[in-house]
């Protein structure tokens, strides 16, 4: 009886903690959503309103470019363009990372190298690219891109984004391929299939869900990048991350529209995350835990 009461008391505390955590996590987002539906007066008034009359004005302004440029004066904002840029850069960036990374991940598991430790070394060295301070690369790259005319270009950014995607894809796909027992591939080779055929009929179907989740996460990571776009991007290729800053300028701060921009920018990734939830743990912990 006593134990039961203690258990229940513990449960109450745990619930309390969980609910508090959930509130703390969700509050900033929900608040931002509410801001995006508020009229400027409601936003800037001294006492923030929790109950208000919602308006779609902010969103309407976001998507009508003419209104945006008029309201801010010299700087011209083009949110739809930013969103499109994010899609293009992250989309093609992820595609390229997959094309380059998945075969590499496979080769690292099944290929024969002179030293068996080479494979882990390569995979790990690639992953360590994530650890480097970007400025150490961006400062010289600024000059290099200027010289080769890659500034403010999709290709320039997509190539640069490979520093994010390739290590991750190689690392994760290697982890997924390692899960497939070599004996299954051997059986297929003996059945009469070549290695190429074996890859497509055995390895690929088994690894598909994992690779799909990796693709989603790569897309999210590339979507989230800021530094690369800041230094090497420009008016034409600005993605939502740097674009969102444009709402704060010396002339005015468009709180409502910025809130709306944040909401729309974050929405795709949240939706994607919910879809691949099951595989998230493995990807987000970099394969440290199989989940």
């Amino acid at each position: 009886m006593y134990m039961q009461k203690r258990e229940e008391l513990h449960k109450v505390w745990i619930y309390f903690g969980l609910v508090a955590t959930a509130i703390l996590v969700l509050f900033p987002m929900l608040w931002t959503v509410s801001l995006s539906f508020k009229v400027p007066q409601d936003i800037t008034c001294a006492v923030p309103k929790f109950i208000f009359k919602p308006t779609l004005d902010n969103y309407r302004h976001l998507f009508s470019i003419a209104k945006l440029s008029k309201s801010v004066g010299t700087t011209s904002l083009n949110f739809p363009r930013y969103f499109l840029n994010s899609l293009i850069i992250s989309g093609f960036g992820t595609l390229l990372s997959l094309l380059v990374g998945v075969p590499a991940g496979y080769a690292l598991t099944r290929g024969k190298f002179k030293k068996s430790s080479t494979r882990e070394n390569i995979a790990f060295t690639l992953l360590s690219f994530w650890f480097g301070p970007e400025m150490a690369i961006l400062l010289p790259l600024y000059k290099l891109y200027r010289t080769f005319g890659l500034m403010d270009s999709y290709i320039g950014l997509i190539l640069l984004y490979q520093l994010i995607g390739v290590p991750f894809v190689v690392w994760m796909s290697r982890s997924y391929f390692l899960d497939i027992p070599v004996s299954i591939e051997d059986a297929s080779l003996l059945d009469g299939y070549t290695r190429w055929q074996t890859f497509w009929r055995i390895d690929f179907p088994l690894v598909k869900p994992g690779i799909a989740a990796t693709a989603v996460l790569t897309f999210i990571f590339e979507w989230n990048n800021f530094v690369f776009a800041l230094v090497v991007g420009g008016r034409h290729t600005m993605p939502v991350t740097t674009g969102a800053l444009g709402f704060i300028s010396y002339e005015a701060v468009l709180w409502g529209q910025m809130a709306g921009a944040i909401v729309i920018s974050a929405l795709p990734e949240i939706i994607l995350a919910i879809i691949v939830q099951k595989y998230m743990i493995r990807g987000l912990t970099f394969g440290a835990v199989r989940g």
């Binding site: 979507w223 989230n224 991350t241 990734e269 949240i270 995350a273 987000l284």
Partner: peptide, 10 residues
């Protein structure tokens, strides 16, 4: 999971 996927800048 949600804060993990939202861009830090945002």
């Amino acid at each position: 999971l949600i804060p993990l996927t939202v861009a830090p800048v945002l």
